[in-house]
Amino acid sequence: MFAQTLEQTERRKAWGFVAPALVWTLAFFVVPFLFMVAMSLWSRQSGQIVRAWNLDNYFAFFEKAALFKGLINSLEITLIVTVLSVLLAYPLAWIIAERVPKRFQRLALILAILPFWTSYVVRSYSWLLVLSKNGVVNQTLMTIGLVSEPLELASNRTATVIGFVHFFVMLLTLTIYANLVQLSPNYRRAAADLGANAFQTFRHVILPLTLPGIMTGAFLTFVLCIGDYVTPQILGGNNELVLPQIIMLQLGRRADFPMAAALSIILMLAVTLAYVLCARWLKIERA
């Protein structure tokens, strides 16, 4: 009897500890999410939100080319950005971790992430100026005679990608650097000792062991990039719309909250899919 009472007390205590987190999760995630799901099943007709359950918004997403293409654009841009960011961030992280003397590494990291400190919007507008016909890049290229006509760098996908990559290289540099410095230097020594050259050591040992850092950063990049509205809005020149822009159109112009909810859930599904794909890689255990 006594043992059981004790167990009950313990159980009650346990609930006491868990409850705040549970309430928090319910109130700020589960309930709003369910509300959004419900909202996505309603529709907006003649300026009114009609609370009849159906999948019309989701069908419309696949039927209206402009909407579906938003997802395709989002995925294309996000993939390009993620791959480019990894390719640029890895060498940077490697140089900071391996070539910069220990006492300067912190400084180098701060310099590498300095652009984080400026406002996202300001940075995007700055890129617009840098990439414009009369911007620094084109002026420089024309002065040194590489091109005779200014390149079309602003207000298109290239500009969006550049703006994104600039931002996410910093993020990935951090995650990859953190991964690189926690690797025992003996891995590299062991590989070299067993006859691997620098490239083989990288290919067979360092790269696989930094996959968690790459994947963590890549996943964050994917999530933040596919959900971003500001950069494509400012730099893309509306020459194509990504899904968040289309969601904003539903909200800002049409007050079509059900459609916006449906599109948001589709965006969430894309992120969930990315997580599932990345999680496979993040499983790598460390000895």
Partner: peptide, 20 residues
């Protein structure tokens, strides 16, 4: 001579087994 080209191998204190 570099470690790779020596007729030696080393067993490290932390073993440095490749975890993957």
């Amino acid at each position: 001579v570099t470690p790779a080209k020596r007729p030696t191998t080393t067993m490290f204190q932390d073993y440095a087994l490749f975890p993957h």
